[in-house]
Amino acid sequence: MNWDLFPQFLATGLLTGGIYALIALGLVLIYKSSRVFNFAQGHILMLGAFVAWWFTENLGWSIWLAFGATIGVAVLVGLLIERLALRPLIGQPILATVMMTLALSQVLQGAVILFFGANQRSLPMMFPLQPVILGDVRLKLNLVLAFGMAMLGFLLFVLFFRYTRWGLAMRAAAEDHQLAQSVGLRVPRIFGLAWAIASVVAIVGGVLLASISGVETNLAIIALKAFPAVLFGGLESIPGAIIGGLTVGVIESLVGGLPQDAAFRALHLGDIAPYVFMLLVLLVRPDGLFGLKRIERI
């Protein structure tokens, strides 16, 4: 690597990592509260990008209005998915929920193509495109602001989780469903809330990404970046989601930035590296870097 470019790749990696972190947060949240791994997370994100596009294109809304409305749609989508697809599976083997979220991903993909078409679209820009120059590092302002939004979303969630009644209910239910029911918490509603929030963060990530790189069905693949991020950070860890997301972004950017000849370039090492790294981490720490330690006291 050309070491002069190191800070540049590092910074770019962190910026994309911020969005991965947001998507990872959704995965962690659903897993933590209901032990369901949501393979459809990327497809929810893609759906959000198309819905936002539809609002701007067909209703003529500004991107920010469309963004807000799409968040509303996200809440509905999350609640509906939980109510119709996952709630009937409560108490069923884990495989049933895995198959269900995989099926969901296909249904969402089909629905998007059916309603919005498979063409690539573009969203109006959310942020101006000027470059930001910090010493040797040149960054695009829209990436920096999108990162800022992602982190703001993350922060809002953490505050909600820590300091509100609903957040407390979610943390309690995440630990022990039966115990939560014994103190009168309505656990299925809490699952619904987790899905709603997870959809919102996915869709916020989706709209941010799409306003930078366009709206297309391929957006769903971005979730493949969030998977190593959550496994790396620990499936149940919220700090793990952010660290995992940023790490994946940085690794991808640094490895992608290595000088390579054409044959290597075709391998897309930058895409593969996070997985290799994740495998190594899992070999040493099977619960991920921040996997929850069970508190055992005899």
Binding site: L168, A169, A172, E175, D176, L179
Partner: peptide, 14 residues
């Protein structure tokens, strides 16, 4: 049976 990762007071509030 406690919510082991929550604090004493958080457990009470639940």
């Amino acid at each position: 049976r406690l919510f082991a990762h929550l604090t004493t007071e958080e457990n009470l509030i639940t």
